[in-house]
């Protein structure tokens, strides 16, 4: 444990670059997931149409999608023999970001959908009677359920920063390139470098704690 703490404060280059890779890939993935997931959840929450129940069930199922399955499917698409193999993305941070985005989008959409469905029934009629267009009403509705939206983004971020399957299969765990905290923990522990793995584990937990503290701070404002 002491060795792990020392490693964190020694500004070890390997630790820093691994933490940086985890953070920036997860951050970009969650931004992209929010861009798709928030409008999808909002649309699903506001509109009533045939097949809506099926879509919600599908979204719930996608939330529980095993990371290795997403990794496997995208590996098939991005590998040299795959339909998108010519893009040369496999074992790059971009492939990891795509995979993590696929994992996080249903989570963001589901949380936003739940927030919109649980919102006060009077919000939309009030907005309409004040003369808001559909887009203006949707935007204000999102503002009214902003804590639910924030929770959606945080939950999505939590999912991608802690996952191993996609990062391992699409990133390949390449040192100084696609090695993330989780894949490094798996590798270093298997090599017997327990202190290194523990150091990264502590940083991972600190990131989760910081994100949740940030959410609490925002909710209290």
């Amino acid at each position: 444990m002491l060795a792990a703490v020392k490693l964190i404060f020694s500004c070890n280059g390997d630790v820093l670059i691994t933490v940086w890779t985890s953070l920036y890939t997860a951050a970009i993935a969650i931004i992209l997931a929010a861009l798709f997931g928030i409008p999808a959840g909002l649309w699903l929450g506001i509109n009533r149409f045939r097949g809506r129940r099926i879509l919600i069930t599908l979204l719930n199922t996608l939330m529980a999608l095993p990371t290795v399955v997403v990794g496997l499917l995208l590996f098939g698409l991005l590998s040299r023999q795959g339909p998108l193999g010519h893009w040369g993305l496999l074992f790059t941070p971009v492939a990891m970001i795509i995979g993590q985005m696929v994992l996080a989008t249903p989570i963001v959409a589901n949380y936003v959908h739940a927030a919109v469905v649980g919102a006060d029934d009077r919000i939309v009629p009030t907005l309409r009677t004040l003369g808001a267009s559909s887009m203006q009403a949707a935007w204000q509705l999102l503002r009214e359920v902003r804590f639910g939206v924030m929770a959606a983004v945080i939950a999505g971020f939590g999912r991608v920063i802690a996952e191993v399957g996609v990062a391992m299969m699409l990133g390949g765990n390449i040192r100084n390139s696609t090695r993330t905290m989780t894949t490094a923990i798996a590798l270093e522990t298997s090599k017997g470098e327990f202190a290194f793995g523990l150091a990264l584990g502590l940083i991972l937990m600190a990131v989760a704690l910081l994100v949740n503290l940030g959410l609490n701070f925002l909710q209290q404002r």
Binding site: D120, R122, I123, T126, T129, L130, R143, E144
Partner: peptide
Amino acid sequence: RRQITLVEQAPYLFS
């Protein structure tokens, strides 16, 4: 609706 405005019995105020 930009000319007609309704105030409901239990109105909703935005946060």
